[in-house]
Design a protein around this nucleic acid. Sequence first.
DNA 1: TTTAGTGCAAACGATTTGCAAAATA
DNA 2: TATTTTGCAAATCGTTTGCACTAAA
Lengths: 131, 131
Amino acid sequence: MANLKYSRQRESIKHFLATTKEHPTADTVYTHVKEEFPNISLGTVYRNLKLLTDLGEAIKITAPDGGDRFDGCTQPHNHFYCTKCKRILDLDLDMKKIEMINQAAADNFDGIIHSSNTIFFGECSDCIKKS
Amino acid sequence: MANLKYSRQRESIKHFLATTKEHPTADTVYTHVKEEFPNISLGTVYRNLKLLTDLGEAIKITAPDGGDRFDGCTQPHNHFYCTKCKRILDLDLDMKKIEMINQAAADNFDGIIHSSNTIFFGECSDCIKKS
DNA sequence: TTTAGTGCAAACGATTTGCAAAATA
DNA sequence: TATTTTGCAAATCGTTTGCACTAAA
């Protein structure tokens, strides 16, 4: 791994991720950071998002549709995907439950389980209200 | 929804999905079905895979890397992603456990949870043997 | 002044789509 | 015959990459 050098663009991306509750796509990050750095390129956003996830300073969420989403909150937590509005929301689940699931899976399985990722599907409260 | 008409190509795709234990990508399906239908096009494979998943006759698995995988086994079950060989393996987990997790999630959440999908990460037995 | 990061544009891989021809009903 | 499905190729979408240039150490 190479040495890391400060960059204002990266700092701005980190700041945006840290303050938004959305789970933005790379493109959404790009649009927002562009307000501060009008010349920033999408490539730079992708490069930094990859760097941040590799460093463990952000999480990449693989959504069942389109592009990946990013989350500045690196605390272990789960996600909910609203099948109506396609938003991803946070969903807190007791870590003990997750460990229990991993244990139950390990019992039936012939390899080593390091971790698991659960995504929940359904309809969010906003969409329920509207219908 | 439009009416459905029989097609040999679709039948062949279904048959391949039903008999393989792998979780093939669209391209892998294409390669195999090509043995029976040398002229089949990738577009046709994609169209039929989408159709089959919409009909509930196949499952689409969104992998954390590259392209989607498909599974002819529509029974609810979980998947294990080997971070070494990148294969996806089946992993059976007691349905009661899954329902419990969904219930636990619903308790903390302000919407309706229809289902959940857990993917496990780790090293499969084949890769453990090799190392 | 050495090295890492940037902007740009071209390249890429996975998937979708428009269209005329072929297969099914 | 009417409608669906196909093969083909071009288009699209998200993402990565090569390169000359700029910024940070």
